[in-house]
Amino acid sequence: MKIMITGAAGFIGSQLAHTLWKNGAELILIDNFSYGKMDNLEFEDHSFANEIIKMDIRDKDGIADLLKAGDVDYIYNIAGIAPLPDCQTDPQQAIDVNVIGTVNLLENGRKYGIKKLILASTNAMYENETEFPTVENNFKQPTLIYPNTKYVAERFCESYCKTYGMNVTCLRFSNVYGPHIDCLRKQPPFVAYMIRELYYDRTPIFHSDGNQRRDYIYVDDLVRLAILVQEGEGFDCVNVASNVNYSVNEMYAIASKIMNKDIKAEYADDAHYWEKYPDLYSGAYPIKNEILAHEINKYSLCDNAHAKEKYGWVPEIDMEEGLRRVIENECELLSRLGEK
């Protein structure tokens, strides 16, 4: 079995690559390293550092050449611009990568006969829902740039399935956490930021009151489902979710206990949420405070019945065990980096 993984040097792509490699798959790994890191490609039992191909998913000829070489069964499109403020700051780039890049893979996959494309999508497209848990086939169109790019990418996937008879599954990730989560990003994911600040004995600054609740999924559980959906035919969208949610304060309490830290968090006003992206606050039409408040206080809880019923998948890693594993990995990384 030959499998192409885009975004293979990222947090999720590298974990998927490692599992598929252990399962005996022949891999084609690509990443343009705008977000990916070579460190993610190093595992105790294998290094992918000399196997990764530096390539952008928008490269028509490059992707075509890789598929022409023959017999690629599956493409996992994990590449993309995911941080919400990055997408808001440069919407043209976000659309170009997340939408046009996906279409490039679909078109080349159509020409050269892949069995299936699996797209990394997002539960962020449920940002305007008011009924929970959210299900795959009934939701309001999103507002922000990032979830809209994934929403549109899914529509092109559906188009290729209906028009050409291709097979595509869109995996709508909940908030993913696990070893190698990016704690060095300009605005890291919450789990990474929380662990980093605790490690350095700094006071973390959260927004709102810390009672906002999100649905999280451990990366190993995600990878298991990503492999199971290889078998599905036609077009499908699947929530990759635990169907359990936790508040910021609850997760901070768990992490503090595991790390044996007693640091009281501080809370900032919603309006400062993306202050590291000043362009969003400038211009004739700055970002609305109510949009920031909505994003910060957004409640997420995703139904995972479809994944259970169709693919026989259930999440196995609970929050306490998952955070324990992430903390162990991230603390080892931070100890090598020194003060940041």
Rank of each mutant, 00 (worst) to 15 (best):
A94G: 06
Q88D: 12
F11A: 01
R324F: 00
C331N: 12
A153V: 08
A271I: 15
F43Y: 12
I263Q: 04
K308C: 08
R325S: 07
K37H: 10
E158R: 15
R324M: 09
D86G: 06
A8Y: 01
I63Q: 03
I95V: 14
C161Q: 09
N148Y: 07
G109K: 03
L301W: 04
K115S: 13
Y281W: 05
K308T: 14
Y285P: 00
I254T: 02
E26P: 00
V168T: 10
C237S: 13
N297D: 12
S208E: 11
E275T: 11
R110T: 01
Y74G: 09
F173W: 12
V191P: 12
I12M: 11
C183Y: 15
A124F: 11
A253T: 11
Q15R: 13
R172Q: 05
Y146I: 08
D303F: 08
S208Q: 10
S121M: 04
I145Y: 06
R185E: 15
G234K: 07
G70R: 08
Y246Q: 07
V229I: 05
R213N: 06
A226M: 13
R224C: 03
E328G: 00
L29Q: 03
E309V: 12
K261W: 01
Y273Q: 08
F48T: 00
E231V: 09
R155Y: 10
M259D: 02
D215K: 04
L144E: 13
D96H: 13
Y35M: 11
G312T: 03
Q141A: 14
